[in-house]
Design a protein around this nucleic acid. Structure first.
Length: 204
DNA sequence: CGTGTTTGACCAGCGC
DNA sequence: GCGCTGGTCAAACACG
């Protein structure tokens, strides 16, 4: 398996676009020092942890129960609505979720890259950084900057090989990627050098 | 001055 | 019940 054509057909469009977007972005970035390739999806830690093709990006995918936007953010609902943290009266944050909900759409992939931040077309705002147990590398937390969109992602370097970046997306965007919109509007302006055909199977 | 990042503290879930 | 850990908040800070 090679190339960028292994996204499942039942994947939400935005994640297909994500792959698409990456292909798009690759031609904008200087990827001479990047080794980026998307392989088949795999079940998280399904036996062969990370001893396969070391140049391959691994993807975890939980399509069983995609979360609709209205389902997704309800329980989180304290989006900057002015609750200054524990002034005098500690607001009961029962809504806070520390563990990811079962069934919440999640996709993760591993990328060999020196860059931790890869522009996937969405605008992300960093809201946290945390060192995790058994890992020398900190984990960074990002939230989609789009109004009303509660998608989050975590970015961390792989413990065993810091040249790999593990990116985990939680939730489904309630909007399209700006870069995708741009691409859809300007299809004829794609230079010859762009390799937009790479992710063709995901949109057939 | 507006926007985004950093960072320390808080909180809740989970395992023992 | 307690401590550990991961996830989040928000004030302070940096940068354009």
């Amino acid at each position: 398996m090679s190339g960028y054509s292994s996204l499942p057909t039942n994947m939400p469009e935005q994640y297909s676009n994500l792959n698409h977007g990456y292909t798009y972005l690759m031609d904008h970035l200087d990827i001479s020092d990047m080794d980026f390739e998307v392989s088949d999806f795999l079940v998280p830690e399904a036996g062969g942890t990370s001893e396969e093709d070391s140049t391959t990006t691994h993807i975890e995918y939980e399509p069983s129960n995609p979360v609709l936007p209205e389902q997704f953010d309800e329980s989180v609902g304290h989006d900057g609505s002015g609750d200054k943290r524990r002034p005098n009266n500690i607001k009961p944050k029962s809504a806070k979720k520390t563990k990811m909900d079962v069934g919440q759409f999640r996709v993760a992939f591993r990328t060999k890259s020196e860059l931790e931040i890869m522009d996937d077309g969405y605008k992300w705002r960093k809201y946290g950084k945390k060192s995790v147990k058994n890992s020398p590398n900190p984990r960074n937390y990002y939230r989609c900057n789009h109004v009303g969109c509660q998608v989050k992602k975590r970015v961390e370097r792989e413990r065993e090989d810091s040249s790999y970046v593990i990116t985990t997306y939680d939730g489904v965007h309630t909007h399209e990627s700006p870069s995708i919109v741009y691409y859809n509007e300007m299809p004829l302006m794609v230079p010859n050098g762009w390799t937009l055909q790479a992710s063709q199977s995901s949109c057939s």
